[in-house]
């Protein structure tokens, strides 16, 4: 079984993003970039499926700028077999990415597409669901557990009140939540090996996909800051202030 794993290059999760002075977006120049953490979890899960003998090939794909190659190399250092970069300078939206992925699914015929549930830059949480919709495939979003057997995936999902389990007929889409696994660090030998793994570059137009955004950014601003609070000296003082000053208890 072949597994396709889309990955996104985003501002590293440890870095506090800065809004550009002109209000057009968030500063990315000179900022450390990494693989979206949820995508790392998806890559890890796909590699584990291969190690268990369930998956035969893990193909990673990224839709983005030239530097997204680094992200793909990281995924291959974790254990993915080969990579596809769909090269574009457009800030692609989930709808466009889902269309690109649909075209790649037609070429690659994977049995499972494993994605991160959301990217930590635009926080859209949409690409997996949209790809599933475009393909008419089953979807298991926010997965904390995946079992594959007999042409079906049994997926445990993180929902508002607890956990839900679904079975999906393959081929299917699964999006990874935090507790699915703990991604490995790539070892130095594997990083070296990943440099020699195949990485193909194509353009969205080669796939016949128009990636023009549907949303126009009117402005990007800092959220209103909270007023600086105070430190209280004791539990009794805290409770008194909550009662008499804030009047919330």
């Amino acid at each position: 079984m072949k597994v396709l794993v889309p990955v996104k290059r985003v501002i590293d999760f440890n870095i506090k993003p800065r809004v550009k002075a002109d209000g057009t977006g968030v500063e990315t120049a000179g900022v450390k970039m990494s693989m979206n953490p949820f995508d790392e979890i998806a890559v890890e899960e796909a590699v584990r499926l291969k190690e268990k003998g369930i998956a035969t090939e893990v193909v990673v794909v990224s839709v983005g700028v030239q530097q997204a190659q680094d992200t793909l190399r990281t995924a291959m250092a974790m254990g993915a077999d080969r990579a596809i970069l769909v090269l574009t300078d457009v800030a692609v939206e989930p709808l466009a990415v889902a269309k690109v992925l649909k075209a790649l699914v037609a070429k690659e015929s994977p049995d499972l597409v494993l994605l991160g549930k959301q990217a930590i830059d635009d926080d859209m949480n949409a690409t997996g669901q949209m790809l599933a919709g475009l393909l008419g495939w089953a979807q298991g979003t926010f997965a904390s557990k995946i079992e594959i057997a007999d042409g079906k995936a049994t997926v445990t999902r993180e929902i508002d009140g607890g956990l839900e389990t679904l079975t999906l007929t393959l081929p299917a889409i699964v999006t990874a939540d935090l507790r699915l696994n703990e991604p490995r660090y790539a070892s130095l030998p594997n990083i070296m090996k990943a440099r020699k793994k195949p990485l193909e570059t194509i353009a969205p137009a080669d796939l016949g996909v128009d990636v023009t955004p549907r949303l126009t950014i009117v402005s990007v601003t800092e959220p209103p800051a909270r007023q600086q609070g105070i430190k209280v000296e004791s539990a009794a003082d805290l409770v008194a202030r909550l009662r008499n000053e804030a009047k919330v208890i």
Binding site: V26, D121, D122, D123, E222, P223
Partner: peptide, 8 residues
């Protein structure tokens, strides 16, 4: 966006 670090 960005975990609420910015409003778009």
């Amino acid at each position: 966006i960005y975990a609420g670090s910015a409003l778009a």
